Computed example of a mutant assay.
Amino acid sequence: MTSPVAEPILRVGELVKHYGAGRGNVVHAVDGVSLSIGPGEVLGLVGESGSGKSTVGKCILRLTEPTSGTVSLVGRDITHLSRRALRPLRRDVHIVFQDPYSSLNPRFTIGQIVAEPLRRHRIARGGEAARQVTAMLERVGLGAETLSRFPHELSGGQRQRVSLARALILEPKLVVADEPVSALDVSVQASVLNLITDLQRDMGFSCLFITHDLSVVEFLADRIAVMYLGRIVETGPTAEIFAAPRHPYTQALLSAAPVPDPVKQRRRRRVVLSGEVPSPLDPPPGCRFHTRCPVAVDRCRTEVPELRDLRLGDHPVACHLVTTDHVPDATATATAGE
């Protein structure tokens, strides 16, 4: 007997977010993004700055209203729910922002900040709230002495641990982590990443981990979705994408990622992309990557590629040149050691 497939914690369908830019101009921040995250799964959303990653995260939480598309949380469509109807569902999804200093209220003590979700959702007050807050702070590696301190009295790493405690105090089903370590010193990043990994394993929450750092998602994520200029161009299991990337953009990203072995780094064939990322005010027709792609053909300049799996397993890719028998190699004309 086949075991039933678990309902995704998050399902996003054809999500679009456009911003008006005056004089009839439109910023195409997100254009038709679809993704899903299963129970206890970590999905890494990666891409260059300006690709639309953070906008996807904000639309999922309804911090930014999507232009079109659907967002479903635990099987319920929350896309058009009123703020009042959405409020009880906010227990199930929380966000960790990039900058822990600006995302924490400077007038609140650490104890008040972490207790705020308990108070807002009328779950605990007084002594019971204090007990839960102290236990959560200890869980993220902070002692009870931080309860009466203010955000400016803590280091960047400690403030991000407070952000994690606040996000997890209600034991949500989904956490959106938006570049949670990019604002931290390199020496602190590893300890916070290890903490997130331990908390995710112990608490079992699903996670959308937004980052531009490929080494981070290789360490943390079960699957990866690669974004370029508002669209997902490739998605699949982390190990499979790192071993055999199919989209030329993914190949270029991985070729630029540093590796710890200097000998391997010298031998690696580096794909150096020409030009700049096109403006989301005027995205190019066809495949949005064709203006920088080293293997683009005429079809890429006119026809938008669909995200297809081609019976190649759980590894869809949006590229006209990828078939069941052929995967383009953007590194073929690259130079080793560049």
Rank of each mutant, 00 (worst) to 15 (best):
P4E: 14
E7G: 05
P8K: 04
H18L: 09
S36E: 15
G38M: 12
G40C: 04
G40A: 03
E41F: 10
V42F: 13
G52A: 06
V56H: 12
G57H: 11
K58I: 05
L63D: 09
T64N: 11
E65L: 10
P66M: 07
V71L: 13
V71K: 12
R76T: 14
R76D: 15
D77T: 01
H80D: 15
R83Y: 13
A85D: 15
R87I: 02
V93F: 15
H94Q: 15
I95T: 06
P100C: 06
S102Y: 12
L104Y: 08
P106L: 11
P106M: 10
P106C: 11
R107W: 05
T109C: 09
G111F: 00
V114N: 00
L118A: 03
R120G: 13
H121D: 13
R122W: 04
I123M: 13
G127L: 14
A129I: 00
R131I: 03
V133G: 08
V133I: 07
L142G: 01
G143A: 04
P151F: 03
P151W: 01
E153H: 11
E153L: 08
S155C: 02
R166M: 08
A167R: 02
A167G: 08
I169F: 05
L170Q: 05
E171D: 15
L174P: 08
V176S: 06
D178I: 10
P180K: 03
V181F: 02
V188I: 15
V188S: 09
V192T: 01
V192C: 01
L195Q: 02
I196Q: 14
I196Y: 07
T197H: 13
L199A: 01
L199R: 00
Q200W: 05
M203I: 10
G204A: 06
F205K: 03
S206Q: 08
S206A: 15
I210P: 08
I210E: 09
H212Y: 02
D213F: 09
E218C: 06
A221I: 06
D222F: 06
A225R: 00
A225F: 02
Y228I: 02
Y228P: 02
A239M: 12
E240I: 07
P245W: 01
P248H: 08
A252Y: 03
L253V: 13
L254Y: 12
A256S: 15
A257W: 06
P260S: 10
D261I: 05
P262V: 09
R266F: 12
R266L: 14
V271H: 12
V272H: 13
L273M: 14
L273T: 07
V277M: 13
V277D: 07
S279L: 00
D282M: 06
G286S: 09
R288I: 05
H290N: 02
R292H: 03
V295C: 07
V295S: 10
A296H: 03
A296R: 03
A296L: 03
R301K: 14
T302D: 01
V304H: 11
E306G: 15
R308E: 06
L310N: 09
L310G: 03
D314W: 07
D314L: 12
H315M: 06
L321C: 09
D325V: 08
H326C: 11
P328E: 06
T331S: 15
T331D: 08
G337M: 11
